[in-house]
Design a protein around this nucleic acid. Sequence first.
DNA 1: GTCTATACCCAGATAGAC
DNA 2: GTCTATCTGGGTATAGAC
Lengths: 195, 195
Amino acid sequence: MARKQGSHSDITGPRVRDAALRLIARHGYAAVSMRQIASEVGIQAGALYNYTPDKQTLLFDLMRGHMADLLAALEAADLQGDSLSRLEGFTRFHIRFHLPRPDQVFVSYMELRNLSDENFAAVEAMRRTYEDALESILRAGEAEGVFAVPDPRITTMALIAMLTGISNWYRAGGRLESDKIEAIYWDMVRRAVTA
Amino acid sequence: MARKQGSHSDITGPRVRDAALRLIARHGYAAVSMRQIASEVGIQAGALYNYTPDKQTLLFDLMRGHMADLLAALEAADLQGDSLSRLEGFTRFHIRFHLPRPDQVFVSYMELRNLSDENFAAVEAMRRTYEDALESILRAGEAEGVFAVPDPRITTMALIAMLTGISNWYRAGGRLESDKIEAIYWDMVRRAVTA
DNA sequence: GTCTATACCCAGATAGAC
DNA sequence: GTCTATCTGGGTATAGAC
């Protein structure tokens, strides 16, 4: 009710982000122009600068937002129990979080090159935090003797690459549903690391 | 000795490709200009068009060349023996081929979006041929009862994603040498698929 | 085969009216 | 908050001299 006449920032802002995410996922950051994004939203290019100071910041906000959502969701998942249960929880969490967000995943993994040094460091730190969550599960299981993981850091990278790779072929409505995919991947993860 | 005066195409051509590969791997196809590539080679932008009809074809040649090298090397590896041996051979081949070629790997996996429809189809067919080589090994092992692979296609994608992911963190001269990496990954692959 | 010069077009970003 | 208009720079690609 306090909304001013002609003020659409509460609706236009998210629409700018949505359009940018979709276009960048499809064509790449460098290949997408501010004019294209504006056209998708239905405004003129100049009006975009009410929502972002520049194109670089727009990309950074998308990537930082995705990583922040990921870390918050992992926290909320609150993985508990023995190492094997926590590893299963992480595996299923990763798949369940990433499958419905193909554009975010694509942008967050493909556009790192296009971040400024400063922004890259910020995103990279968040990614590292996520990786460390898995690594600590592997180290705990190794210490307990339930996992045989000679190099937990390498195994962390291997498992995350394997799981994230699902987004390269998964299409909603395809042959396999998320439950089935989780089962197949959890089976591989479990066998790859258990002693 | 038959070289004409002023003719440098036999040397400049490869230099153009090398420069393009390195710059595109670092900054992305759309972010790299023909002027930058020319500058790296030490010629003017116009002269590039003696070596490629356009920028798109230059990218396509890089990617097609990489995939052709990959398929030829796999053929030459001539994997033989039982399914387990062939899987080990494929795993070690994949790592050994990809590790020394980080730029080609990066470009070939990140720039698919920037290929024209026609060129994309050609590269995708080559990639599919490579994937099928692994899938057929998994199916053979499943039939023999030495592998437990409920969905060979999915497992193929999972293993290739895991192995290719090495290029995301491996740096020549780093903590681990190729032999050690091969051993760690082969151990995970074997455990993930054997019955 | 390479150069200089240029055609033609579009990029990111800003200014000021409404 | 959005528009139109514009600044400034750089993009791909070609033409024609050497």
